[in-house]
Simulated scan of single mutants.
Amino acid sequence: MAASAYLDTTLLPDNYHFWVITAVDSSDWRYESLYSNEVSDHPWLAYDDGTAEGFSKVVYGAGAVRFTPDSYPVKLEKVRIYVYGNQVYDYKTYRLREARFNLMVWDDDGEGGAPGARLIQPILVEPSGGQRWVAIDLSGYDIVVSDGEFYVGWWDLGDGFQIGNDTSDPSVEMRSWFANDKVSWNGYSGFTSMIRVQVLPLSGTSVEETTPQLPVSAFELFQNHPNPFNSGTVIGFQLPTSGEVSLRVYNILGQEIRTLVTGVLKPGTHRVAWDGRDDNGVAVGSGVYLYRLAVDGGRWEETRRMMLLR
């Protein structure tokens, strides 16, 4: 892609301006890349190179990719699946539509490490737009993996849903799994079904910053999510201006047990993970905890409650 420049002559003084940059396939304008206004260093677990050399389908069956986190615990945030976008005839609406599927997440406690217990209920996905990456947001689900591996995949609904395969690395071993009957799983080597997962590490206190689409007008501390929680939770807050920020966790007696944030942060929306441990790395017990956000030494502050259930 050649470098290019664009001069915007429509800017007005004392106004906020935002730009979104995407890529469009020159041979077919329908295929536009995804974009995001989020700046995040949360890692993506991916075993493909982004190019599909072929596609697979398991009519009325299931398929999955086995994922191995770099650290524990992690919370699943987003999924991307590369779909073929094949058309099927819908006898209820008498129209063509793209093949649908149920997104699934499994533990690795099946026989021989195969997909086992479901970690969420099926999520119906209805793609549109042809051959492309489809994004599914899991941030609203409490999917926390504390050890071992997990699987993300699909259930076919009879539409013959097709997923992209990366065959560029023949040495890849047992990443892709299929079950013709959704029960009897078999792992395959030599290719990778194109599914990627973004995870939020809960073992530290890294701050995720999100650039707002509109200016933030007020300080606000959000309710943590999930709540109640077991392995970890995420606390969000927003700042209309830069400031010296502290975010601390206290027990019900008001004793400080963990400092999550201390330092200067820029305006915008921020999220911080807490892994349920104190400043010494010791897991705290079940109960009600308080978290307090203070800006500029108490110029603005707010406290909320959360519940930890072990």
Rank of each mutant, 00 (worst) to 15 (best):
M1I: 05
S4F: 12
Y16T: 14
Y16C: 01
V20F: 03
S26T: 15
D28V: 02
W29E: 08
R30H: 15
S33C: 07
Y35R: 00
S36E: 11
E38N: 06
S40F: 01
D49P: 03
D49H: 05
S56N: 09
S56T: 10
G63H: 04
R66P: 02
T68S: 10
Y91C: 06
R95C: 01
R100H: 07
N102K: 03
V105N: 13
V105D: 01
A114P: 04
G116S: 08
I123V: 15
I123W: 07
E126G: 00
A135T: 15
L138Y: 12
V145Q: 02
F150K: 11
W154F: 09
N165E: 08
D166G: 00
P170K: 07
M174P: 00
M194D: 04
L200W: 13
P201F: 08
S203V: 00
G204W: 10
S206N: 12
Q213W: 02
V216T: 08
E220G: 06
N227L: 11
G236R: 10
E244V: 07
S246D: 10
Y250E: 02
G254D: 04
E256L: 15
E256H: 08
V272K: 01
Y289F: 11
Y289G: 13
L290S: 12
R292Y: 11
G298C: 11
W300M: 05
R305Q: 15
L308C: 02
